[in-house]
Amino acid sequence: MGIKFIKISVCYFVVGICLGMYMSMTEKFDFTPVHVHINLLGWTAMTLAGLIYVAFPTAAETTLAKVHFWLHNIALPIMMIGLAFLVSGVKSAGPAVAVGGTLMVLGIILFAINILKNVKN
């Protein structure tokens, strides 16, 4: 699972950086929250999770790791698309942000449980 996390995190990194470049070129920074969350939750958090899973393969082989991977990668696009609409003035996009955010929190809680349970000396 570690390598999968690292590889997909690079995709989020490219998306986040391209969004940042777009905002810089147009001098319109409305999507800053989207840019920040994609880079933090997509690039940074997933890379770190991947590195932890590479370092501790016992944790990476669990069902918790697989569920974490899928929850993270379902939640982030839902949350970021919703957030992009929300900051663009579409108030009805709030539930998408809430659903994506809730799924993200659940995935991260499962990650924490997995690490606390399966990472040992």
Rank of each mutant, 00 (worst) to 15 (best):
G101V: 05
W43C: 10
V34Q: 05
T58M: 02
H68A: 08
L116W: 15
M79G: 08
I108C: 09
G89W: 07
L103Q: 07
A59E: 04
N73C: 06
M46A: 08
M1F: 12
F13I: 00
H72Y: 04
E61R: 12
M79D: 02
V67S: 00
S24G: 15
I115K: 10
L19Q: 10
P57F: 02
I3E: 15
G2N: 04
A49K: 03
P95Q: 11
G16V: 03
P77T: 09
T58I: 07
H72F: 02
M46G: 01
M21E: 11
Y12F: 12
I8G: 02
A96V: 02
A112Q: 10
L103S: 08
M80F: 01
L64N: 07
V105H: 05
H68S: 12
L64K: 09
M21S: 12
A60K: 00
I81W: 01
F13R: 05
A45N: 07
A60H: 04
T63P: 00
V36T: 14
A45L: 14
V87C: 12
A112S: 15
I6N: 13
A112M: 15
V119L: 04
I115P: 01
L103G: 11
T63G: 14
L71M: 12
K4N: 11
G20R: 05
T102H: 06
K117M: 13
F85P: 02
L76A: 08
M23K: 04
V87T: 11
L76T: 00
F5P: 02
K7Q: 14
V119A: 10
Y53P: 06
V99F: 03
G107Q: 09
V99E: 08
I8C: 04
V34H: 01
M23R: 04
M46E: 13
G2R: 09
V119D: 00
P77Q: 01
N73H: 12
L110Y: 03
I74P: 02
F85A: 14
G89A: 08
T102W: 00
N114P: 06
N114C: 06
Y12R: 05
L19C: 11
I115C: 13
M80H: 04
W43M: 12
I8L: 14
M23F: 01
I74M: 09
G107R: 04
C11A: 15
M25D: 11
P95N: 09
G2Q: 12
L76E: 03
V54F: 03
G82R: 05
K7P: 00
G20D: 07
M80D: 00
V54E: 08
G16F: 00
L71G: 07
T44M: 13
N121A: 09
A84F: 01
I8D: 01
M80L: 13
L71Y: 05
L48R: 04
G50E: 02
T102I: 09
L19F: 10
G101C: 10
F85V: 00
M104E: 14
K91R: 13
L83G: 01
I78G: 07
T32V: 14
T102D: 07
A93N: 04
L116S: 13
V97N: 09
S9C: 07
G50K: 01
L110S: 13
G89Q: 08
V10S: 12
